[in-house]
Computed example of a mutant assay.
Amino acid sequence: MRILIIIPAYNESSSIKELIDNLKKENVDLLVINDGSTDSTSLICRQNNVNVIDLPCNLGIGGAVQTGYKFAFKENYDIAIQVDGDGQHDPKQIRLLIEPIINGHADMVIGSRYIVKRGFQSTLIRRIGIKYFSRLIYVLTKRKITDPTSGFRACNRKVITVFANVYYPADYPEPESIVHLLRTNHKVQEVPVEMIERQGGISSIRAFRSIYYMVKVSFAILIDGLRGKKFYEVDQL
């Protein structure tokens, strides 16, 4: 199976080299989406023979990741795995993500730090947001997702096609994309992983933006629900 690692990166020069070195040990293809970085992120990747797409401006995490999915779709990859560029995701755990997909048990697999609760558990403010979105997703879909903001995710070809051509949220896409997949009858599964504290860079979700983040994503999820499954089926045609 052809497997692509998608790494969205914005000013991650302090952590990207070590991440690349560790990912190369996993024997998969790498693609860095340089989201308008002003530091040497792109240069470091090129010096280490990693494919890079340099976006002309900062699109945010949603636009950067969807660029990776469009590349994965165009190049006929079977599995795409999202790994953050800040070093929080352990490449050794990639096998845990792809196993349910290879076995046909899941369309998307999320690496959750809250199943066994080992490793870095995130900041207090972010944990509050995670619990809120977990509850909201349960209310809307009757499915418990313990780590809905996790960016450590793997998708099969079917989900790659959806994210590349049909629908992918522009801002803070993780919770919203989960709800969309569940509403359109895709199989979403979580596996336990351990995460590491951010090795560099600055989080896109900072304290003063947390309320804005929660409100915006909540409205986006509700609007997506009002559109319904048929809206996306017609749009795809």
Score class of each variant (00 low, 15 high):
Leu23Gln: 09
Gly62Gln: 08
Ile94Leu: 14
Leu23Phe: 05
Lys74Ala: 12
Gln82Arg: 12
His105Ile: 07
Asn49Arg: 13
Lys92Phe: 07
Thr38Ile: 10
Gly87Ser: 02
Glu99Ile: 05
Pro56Cys: 04
Lys70Gln: 14
Asp86Val: 00
Ile79Cys: 03
Gln47Asp: 15
Thr67Ser: 09
Phe71Ser: 01
Asp29Ile: 00
Leu55Met: 10
Ser42Arg: 06
Ile101Glu: 02
Gln66Lys: 11
Tyr69Trp: 11
Glu75Ser: 07
Tyr77Ile: 03
Phe73Lys: 13
Ala72Asp: 03
Glu26Asn: 13
Asn27Ala: 14
Gly87Ala: 05
Glu75Asn: 15
Ile101Pro: 02
Gln47Glu: 15
Gln88Tyr: 01
Cys57Tyr: 11
Asn34Asp: 15
Asn76Thr: 06
Asn76Met: 08
Asn49Val: 00
Asp107His: 08
Gln82Lys: 12
Ile44Ser: 13
Asp35Phe: 06
Cys45Leu: 09
Leu30Ile: 15
Ser40His: 08
Ile61Pro: 06
Leu31Thr: 11
Val65Thr: 13
Leu30Ala: 06
Ala106Val: 04
Ile98Lys: 03
His89Val: 09
Ile53Asp: 11
Ala64Gln: 04
Ile33Val: 13
Gly62Phe: 05
Lys25Gly: 07
Asn76Ala: 12
Phe73Val: 00
Leu30Trp: 13
Ile98Arg: 07
Asn49Met: 01
Ser42Pro: 07
Gly60Pro: 08
Leu30Gly: 11
Leu43Ser: 15
Asp35Cys: 04
Pro56Ser: 11
Leu31Asp: 13
Gly104Asn: 08
Gly68Ala: 06
Pro91Gly: 10
Leu97Asn: 07
Asp54Gly: 06
Ser37Val: 04
Ile81Thr: 02
Ile79Tyr: 05
Asn58Gln: 14
Ala72Gly: 06
Ile53Glu: 07
Leu23Lys: 11
Lys70Val: 05
Phe71Thr: 11
Ile94Cys: 03
Gln66Asn: 14
Arg95Pro: 00
Gln66Pro: 03
Ile94Ser: 08
Arg46Cys: 13
Ile44Gln: 14
Asp54Asn: 15
Ile61Ser: 04
Ile101Asn: 05
Ser40Met: 10
Ala72Val: 06
Lys74Tyr: 10
Leu31Cys: 11
Gly63Pro: 05
Lys70Asp: 05
Gly68Cys: 02
Tyr69Phe: 15
Glu26Met: 12
Gly62Lys: 04
Asp86Ile: 00
Ile53Trp: 05
Gly63Phe: 00
Pro56Asn: 15
Asn103Tyr: 03
Thr41Gly: 11
Phe71Arg: 05
Ala64His: 02
Ala106Thr: 03
Asp29Asn: 15
Lys74Val: 05
Thr38Lys: 14
Val28Gln: 14
Ile101Met: 01
Asn51Gln: 14
Ile98Ala: 04
Lys24Thr: 08
Ile61Glu: 12
Ser37Thr: 10
Gln66Tyr: 00
Lys24His: 12
Val32Ser: 10
Leu59Met: 10
Glu99Asn: 07
Tyr69Gly: 03
Asn58Glu: 05
Tyr69Asp: 12
Arg95Val: 13
Ile94Tyr: 04
Ser42Asn: 12
Gly63Tyr: 02
Glu99Ala: 11
Ala80Lys: 06
